[in-house]
C-alpha cells in the first residue's frame, strides 16, 4: 500500500462555527493505481489533493504514507518525504518564469543535492522523452499552454517519484492537448507511477482505474471504471 487516510477531518472556524473542508475521509491507495477525484466546486477536491501532497495539514485522523505516519512527522521530515516520493502537476503549470525549460525541470534535483553531471543526464533524458530538446533554452512565456504543461509534468517526474498529484492538469488546455496529456498519464501509469488527478471532465476521469466523487468534503461514492 502506498498511502492510507483514516477518518480524516479538516475544518476552518469562521465566526465560531466549524466549516468542514474534509469530513471523515477514508482512502487507501495501492502502488500503481490511477485515481480520479471528481466533484462540484468547493467539494474539497483540491484540499484533499494538497493534504495527500503534504502541502496542507489536517485537524483529525491519520495519514500513513509508505508506513510513515505523516501526522506525527515534523515539517522538515515531511518535506524530505514528499520531495522524494511525490511530484506535483498544476492547472496553471506554475513554472518559474525566470528559469528556462531546462532549469525548470532541473529545479527539484537541485533541492535533492543531485550531482551536476547526474542532473545533466537526467534532465537530458527527460527532454528527450517529451520531445522538447529543441525548447530547452526557451522561457515559459515563449511556450504554448500544452508545451508548458509538458514541462510541468517533466518537472514532476524528474526526481522519479512514486506518486504524481495532478490538480486539473488539462483545465487550461484545449481538448487535443488535454487528450495528449491524458495519454501520457496512462503511459506513465503503465510504467508503474501512481497517479491521483483532480478533474471536472467525465472523459478525463475515465482514463483512471477508479473515480472518487466528493460532495461537501465527504466521499460520496467510489466508482471502478
Amino acid at each position: 500500500m502506498l498511502l492510507e487516510l483514516k477518518n480524516m477531518f479538516k475544518w476552518v472556524t469562521v465566526g465560531g462555527n466549524r466549516i468542514f473542508l474534509l469530513k471523515d475521509i477514508n482512502l487507501q491507495v495501492q502502488e500503481g493505481e490511477f485515481i480520479s477525484i471528481m466533484g462540484p466546486s468547493g467539494s474539497g477536491k483540491s484540499t484533499l489533493l494538497n493534504v495527500i501532497g503534504m502541502l496542507d495539514g489536517f485537524d483529525e485522523g491519520e495519514y500513513n504514507f509508505l508506513h510513515e505516519s505523516v501526522h506525527k512527522l515534523k515539517e522538515k521530515q515531511r518535506a524530505q518525504l514528499y520531495k522524494q516520493y511525490i511530484g506535483f502537476v498544476f492547472q496553471q503549470y506554475h513554472l518559474i518564469d525566470e528559469l528556462t525549460v531546462y532549469e525548470n525541470i532541473e529545479t527539484p534535483l537541485l533541492y535533492q543535492d543531485v550531482k551536476s553531471s547526474e542532473r545533466k543526464a537526467m534532465v537530458a533524458d527527460m527532454l528527450d522523452r517529451f520531445n522538447i530538446v529543441g525548447k530547452k533554452d526557451l522561457f515559459p512565456s515563449q511556450l504554448s499552454g500544452g508545451q508548458q504543461q509538458l514541462v510541468g509534468i517533466a518537472r514532476a517526474l524528474i526526481a522519479k517519484p512514486k506518486l504524481i498529484l495532478a490538480d486539473e492538469p488539462t483545465g487550461n488546455l484545449n481538448s487535443r492537448q488535454g487528450e495528449e496529456i491524458m495519454e501520457l498519464f496512462t503511459q506513465l501509469n503503465k510504467e508503474g507511477v501512481t497517479i491521483i488527478q483532480v478533474t471536472h471532465s467525465e472523459k478525463n476521469a475515465a482514463y483512471a482505474g477508479r473515480t472518487i466523487h466528493l460532495l461537501d468534503g465527504r466521499i460520496e461514492k467510489h466508482i471502478n471504471n
Binding site: K76, A79, Y82, K83, H94, I96, T107, P108
Partner: peptide, 16 residues
C-alpha cells in the same frame, strides 16, 4: 510568492 510556492513544492527547504 508563486516562485516560493513552486520551489517549496519542488522540495526546497526554507533555509534554501
Amino acid at each position: 510568492a508563486k516562485e516560493v510556492g513552486v520551489r517549496k513544492v519542488a522540495g526546497a527547504l526554507r533555509h534554501q
